[in-house]
Amino acid sequence: MSQLVLNAPFVAVAALTCVACYIIMTQKNLIKIVMGVVILQGAVNLFLVTLGYRIGGVAPIYTETSGTLMVLPVPQALTLTNIVIGVSTTALMLALIVLIYRHTGETDAEKSRRMKG
């Protein structure tokens, strides 16, 4: 039972990755593609944070703990950094979509293909 619970986050990571890949491969609406990328970011963040989980570990916010081990907060730091980076890339993507919409009146990937060949 506990094995199942511990592995549940990894199953969720796999499921989210599959959903995200499906979205970015099939959806033609630019905003939906951005949503797919955000879901992929969520999957990776969940993966990182799950790696940092230690059974019985204590958050490293005390100077001293009695007997128990403190968790090295590296994955949490990575996740926070990635969230910040994710927000900025998403903002830039949406800004570019707004510009594309102003130029063409479309948010369809099949319509914004001026450059090909």
Partner: peptide
């Protein structure tokens, strides 16, 4: 070869994945 370069962003992502 020319037709493969569709210019659609989904296709680029499909190639990457």
């Amino acid at each position: 070869t020319v037709r493969a370069h569709t210019g659609i962003v989904n296709d680029y992502l499909i190639w990457l994945l």
